[in-house]
Design a protein around this nucleic acid. Structure first.
Lengths: 188, 188
DNA sequence: ACTTAAATAGACAACTTTGTCTATTTATTT
DNA sequence: AAATAAATAGACAAAGTTGTCTATTTAAGT
């Protein structure tokens, strides 16, 4: 079962969209640049995606799936239930370093294109709610010290992660995400 | 000492820029819309600001000053040193409600125009560093329970505030900022 | 090999973008 | 009241935007 012709084109487009939308922003990236750097024809793009907004939605959905799958795999490799919680912080730090502190793709999308299409906001809410739920499950099994309730600890890890990514993207270094990890370590 | 002619124009422009850049984004706001809604001529804008980027920088600097002054005044009205810490959370929640959960203006600017001009990133870093320092001073005088060190508590409040604003702007409700307040309350 | 489907290059329309420039009107200051 | 400075309306250039359409080439399935 080899890849179909259309899927190759779609993948090339989405790879380029991912890179450009993230690195230079949705509004600063023109369709012409997407097709040039994808090495495909303009008509091909508009055969697979009705509009630029549609491309944005597809990019977000695909990114969401890949990103979350990597998070689950990253945490699964850790055995200790408390260390699993810290792995969530490590994952975010590693990703931000890889992305050169460009910030969270969902938040960027929310800030730039959030108002135009409800599907975009929906996808972002899905992604964030899913992470929070994931953290919640890890907290429940962690056997933490109960300085905070399960719900509170979940919220704390979630918010400090979000805040840490924001701070890392402002100061262009991992310090805040590392500090967050140490604090969580103390609280569990 | 009444306002000079030029200053009135500058204020009108910056008021409009503030509103439009925040509500619809920097890249989605054209110079033509700014001059129309400011009720000024295009040549007037370009007499006071060299370029659109210059206008963005000026908007961020002015917003930074006003926002921080309001924060200081808001916290100063609270007497109890521990409640001052919680007031920081309240201030962010109130502001986000007023702004209809549009998120943090600095983060939005960072995501959208951060790469184009170093002055923009600088201004954002200034603002965030200043808030963190401000929280640090409040923590030092708070007489908190020392579950966390001063530095750790400062970082925690800072990150949960940033994360709370992000979460509020994603879910379009104040729940996460309110949850953050309760958790901080427990930790001090 | 032949037919059907898909991808291509690129011209084009219609519109928007930032920034400049001119000619005119409105304030302010001496 | 005359001179100086500032703001105005709006045309304009040059480039960029999304999206459509045609004519041609390439690949796949039977």
């Amino acid at each position: 079962m080899t890849k179909q012709r259309g899927q190759v084109v779609i993948d090339k487009i989405l790879d380029t969209a991912d890179r450009l939308f993230y690195n230079q922003g949705y509004n600063s990236t023109g369709i012409n640049q997407v097709i040039e750097e994808s090495d495909i024809a303009k008509a091909s793009l508009y055969k697979h995606f009705e509009s630029k907004t549609d491309l944005m939605v597809a990019y977000l959905q695909r990114f969401h799936q890949g990103w979350f799958a990597r998070l689950e795999a990253y945490v699964a490799r850790v055995a200790d239930p408390k260390l699993k919680l810290l792995a969530v912080l490590d994952y975010h730090r590693e990703r931000q370093q890889l992305r050169e502190y460009g910030g969270c793709p969902f938040i960027k999308a929310n800030n730039e294109a959030g108002m135009s299409d409800t599907r975009i906001l929906s996808e972002i809410q899905n992604a964030k709610a899913r992470v929070k739920k994931f953290i919640g499950k890890l907290v429940a099994k962690s056997g933490h010290r109960k300085i905070l309730t399960n719900k509170e600890l979940t919220e704390t890890i979630f918010l400090m992660t979000e805040g840490g990514v924001v701070a890392a993207s402002v100061f262009k270094k991992p310090a805040d995400l590392q500090a967050a990890k140490k604090i969580i370590q103390k609280l569990i």
